[in-house]
Nucleic acid binder design. Structure first.
Length: 571
RNA sequence: CGGUGAGUAGCGCAGCUUGGUAGCGCACUUGGUUUGGGUCCAAGGGGUCGCAGGUUCGAAUCCUGUCUCACCGACCA
């Protein structure tokens, strides 16, 4: 490709509304342009990268025995009504009507379509297992699209769905997919980790996310410092502190604490650390039929944070988790939220394991302006219900019993899970088994955020000059930069010849034949992130040499012109 | 949805307080100059100042409404 016949579209200045590096560089290097919030046009350079990523994904999926197909973006609403997700999915599901006023959705995912298809196409256990996938556009009407392509509303996803007669078969395909995903991220040249994940409300126990590690990641991942254990913090189990539960020695007493509400103020007032205090959060209870809305108290150690996902899984708690309003608390419990505590509450109380491990602690007195000190569960509260409801933090013991947890940030680029029969049973998708009986299938599903990988790769591979693509997904492998070609026939001749030969050798080369000064070319090629550069200049031509430069290491070396093709091919 | 901020040329911004019909840098066009790291000089082209309404002789500027965009958002108990 010649720059003179290409759309490079680089920019010197960073657009004002781009917050993270990958977004800024994608705009500056001319990979994407925003059309509207969460909607992006892929420019030629960006599309080249996107296509390289999809090709690697396809290749590994095919090798793992999956079969490519393609389903429509627009899907009829009745499929979603059948699966129950028409009501369940919420406002992220963009609903549209056609000219006949029939309901459709813009597909955020394709379980319904594939299940309906398999129901019709597959009728015997002999055709199983089968794993079908597509690389396709998805639409999710995100509340807040952000970070450019990282969380956009329209995006490219590889989604695969496998169908099985039993769980053993599902388990095997799941393992194959796990391995295929590792291969994919390995080949993409990214630093990644598979982590244990929340399978959501979908049921089916097993689920893994694949994260690319990056500071700007939206997810927190907990790692053991001495084993393979890695889990999304949503999922990572928080163990009770090690050792015997301390025995209380104090007797509970009430202390006037005017204007003391936050844990920070409590600590200051009593001159203790947050580890000796307890905080009480009041949330809405799971609604019982015909009963008025109840409340539930969640009790945590002062220095701990509530984990919403864990709390929502409790039968007593309303999902999605909703904090009771200040007014509701005041009305039902008779005090300000800053003075709440577990002692003497008439609503259900659920205590985090770490909080339950405390003795002689401090908490609110359920009386505005008063706290209790020297509180002990056994004496002052009685039998309590314990649960793991807190967020793990760095330094906590690893749930697998080996080492301590570290917390790092990651970008979720892949998610695999065992779905079970949620969709197949809702939609009656089954086959005749060996006994000639109709049997509902069990399913797995496996997603990769293809467009998100492009952004994630940049987050992990850039410097102050621009992007540094891993070779496998670079838009071009090589930049050919002639110095002042328009003044020198000799340079032009060498450049043209090299360009022809390199192209003939199957190398993706971008030949900068613009009438620009060298500095402009260098800067553009570095911004775009092309991994390898050849510079052709008068100086070296006298020796029959050209200069090679690596984008990543910055290392330069002179090459004999005759050796260029071989050298570049071997990179 | 709540909070904050922003909409003026393709991009980055000034002008608005104190109304008088729009400007700077980059990019673009033309000519010259320069040529191993975003040369320099000159001359140009390009904007219904987000949209609608109002006040006024006159509105980018003041008022009202509206749309769009970005960032932040249980973690207070």
């Amino acid at each position: 490709m010649r720059t003179s016949q290409y759309l490079l579209s680089t920019q010197k200045e960073t657009p004002a509304d781009a917050e993270i590096v990958s977004h800024q560089l994608m705009l500056r290097a001319g990979l994407v342009r925003k059309l509207a919030s969460g909607l992006y046009t892929w420019l030629p350079t960006g599309l080249r990268v996107l296509n390289k990523v999809s090709e690697i994904v396809r290749d590994e999926m095919n090798k793992a025995g999956a079969i490519e197909m393609l389903m429509p973006v627009v899907q009829p609403a009745d499929l979603w009504q059948e699966s129950g997700r028409w009501e369940e999915y919420g406002p992220e599901l963009l609903r549209i009507k056609d000219r006949h006023n029939r309901d459709f959705v813009l597909g955020p995912t394709h379980e319904e379509v594939i299940t309906a298809l398999v129901k019709n196409e597959i009728s015997s256990y002999k055709q199983l297992p089968i794993n079908l996938y597509q690389v396709q556009t998805k639409f999710r009407d995100e509340v807040r699209p952000r970070f450019g392509i990282m969380r956009s509303r329209e995006f490219t996803m590889k989604d695969a769905y496998s169908f099985h007669i039993d769980n053993d078969s599902l388990e095997k395909t799941y393992q194959d997919m796990f391995q295929a995903y590792c291969n994919i991220f390995e080949r993409l040249g990214l630093e990644y980790r598979p982590v244990i994940a929340d399978s959501g409300s979908i049921g089916g126990a097993v689920s893994h996310e694949f994260h690319v590690l990056a500071e700007s990641g939206e997810d927190a991942i907990a790692f053991s410092d001495s084993s393979d254990y890695a889990a999304n913090t949503e999922m990572a189990e928080a163990l009770a502190p090690a050792g015997e539960k301390p025995t209380g020695t104090q007797t509970m007493s009430e202390v006037a604490t005017p204007n003391v509400g936050t844990i920070e103020q409590v600590c200051a007032h009593f001159d203790v650390t947050a580890e000796q205090t307890v905080k009480t959060l009041i949330v809405l209870a799971q609604q019982q039929d015909d009963q008025p809305q109840g409340l539930v108290a969640l009790v945590l150690r002062g220095d701990h944070q509530l984990n919403t996902i864990k709390a929502e899984k409790l039968a007593e708690v309303h999902a999605p988790l909703t904090l009771a309003s200040d007014d509701a608390v005041k009305q039902m419990l008779g005090c300000d939220i800053g003075s709440l505590g577990p002692v003497g509450l008439t609503i259900p109380v659920i205590v985090d394991r770490s909080a339950a491990h405390l003795a002689d602690f401090i908490c609110g007195a359920n009386k505005t302006g008063y706290h209790l000190q020297g509180v002990n569960w056994q004496n002052d509260v009685g039998e309590i219900q314990q649960a793991d409801i807190r967020e793990v933090q760095a330094g906590d013991p690893s749930p697998d019993g080996q080492g301590k947890l570290e917390i790092k940030r990651g970008i979720e680029v892949g998610h695999i899970f065992q779905l079970g029969d949620k969709y197949s049973s809702a939609m009656g998708c089954g086959v005749l088994n060996e006994q000639g009986k109709h049997q509902i299938l069990t399913m797995g599903c496996y997603g990769i955020g293809v467009s998100r990988i492009v952004a994630a790769a940049i987050e992990q591979n850039h410097d102050k000059y621009g992007i540094i693509w891993p070779d496998a997904i670079a838009p071009f492998k090589l930049a050919l930069i002639p110095m002042n070609m328009h003044k020198s026939h000799r340079i032009q001749e060498v450049a043209e010849t090299l360009y022809e030969k390199l192209t003939a050798a199957g190398i993706d080369v971008l030949f900068d034949d613009r009438k620009e000064r060298p500095g402009v070319m260098f800067n553009d090629m570095e911004l775009v992130g092309i991994p390898h550069t050849l510079v052709i200049g008068e100086r070296n031509l006298d020796e029959n040499k050209v200069e090679y430069k690596s984008r990543r290491s910055g290392e330069k070396q002179l090459l004999d012109i005759d050796n260029v093709i071989r050298f570049i091919t071997q990179l």
